[in-house]
């Protein structure tokens, strides 16, 4: 039977998202954010969510809308405060959202570890800072390293550029960012793409995320975007 991961719409793409889920959301700034899938989660009504994303949204739509809805109780990210991150800032100031701040390289490597079956890793990042508090520190070759543990999710929402029905992906420019590591690190990886091409048409030398990491693909011709 042919493998076909293409689903007809956003609702089908995010079907199964439930209260208490941990959700990874790709993107850096406004590049590579799967805004249509985020609004699908919003429409699905799930609550008490933990979000893992580099930023915490700006403006009033996308991740900012999800946070503004009050359905996100916890966020794991490296850089929540940005120009226009007012909805997050207000909830944070009011103590309505928990923040786990993670150095950006540690964030992406924890995802890679989860996807690659690695139980943890020692990094020099954060040694001697508050972000290493309570973590094991071990010395290798005269230098201190902090033990960091894998980071996985129930669902990863990823924006890519092109896909086929197996779920092979390519990305566009700096919109790639966290997509490939998030796709590896979730039980269910859902991708929105601007183009779907027939199987065999993508150059195997240039596929960035191989099909094995992807569960569902939805074609969004004109993805939502807005000024920030």
């Amino acid at each position: 039977m042919p493998i076909d991961k293409i689903v007809p719409d956003v609702a089908a793409a995010v079907a199964g998202v439930k209260d208490g889920d941990t959700i990874m959301i790709s993107g850096f700034g406004f590049a590579g954010v799967p805004n249509d899938l985020i609004h699908g989660v919003l429409d699905a009504g799930a609550r008490d969510l933990t979000i893992i994303s580099n930023n915490a949204g700006t403006g009033t739509e996308g991740l900012a809308a999800l946070i503004g809805s009050g359905r996100v109780t916890r966020i794991i990210c490296s850089y929540p405060r940005s120009k226009g991150s007012d909805l997050f800032d207000a909830r944070y100031a009011a103590g309505e959202i928990d923040l786990e701040l993670v150095p950006q390289g540690t964030l992406s490597e924890r995802m890679r570890a989860a996807g690659a079956g690695v139980a943890g890793f020692y990094t020099p990042t954060g040694v001697g800072t508050d972000l290493a508090d309570g973590k094991e520190v071990r010395r290798f070759d005269g230098r201190d390293y902090v033990l960091e543990l894998p980071l996985r999710a129930d669902i990863a929402l990823v924006q890519a550029y092109r896909a086929d029905r197996w779920g092979n992906l390519t990305y566009r420019k700096a919109a790639r960012n966290f997509g490939p590591v998030m796709a590896m690190a979730a039980d269910l990886t859902v991708v929105q793409v601007r183009e779907v091409v027939p199987l065999g048409e993508m150059d195997p030398e240039t596929i960035v995320t191989p099909s094995i990491f992807v569960d569902r693909v939805v074609h969004i011709d004109n993805d939502r975007e807005w000024d920030i």
Partner: peptide, 21 residues
């Protein structure tokens, strides 16, 4: 990366990785 003021959420980004690497 942080002023410790809750009105201005902290943001480490890649700074600690760059400083270490």
């Amino acid at each position: 990366w942080t002023t410790g003021d809750r009105r201005f959420p902290p943001g480490v980004g890649g700074a600690m990785d760059l400083a270490a690497g």
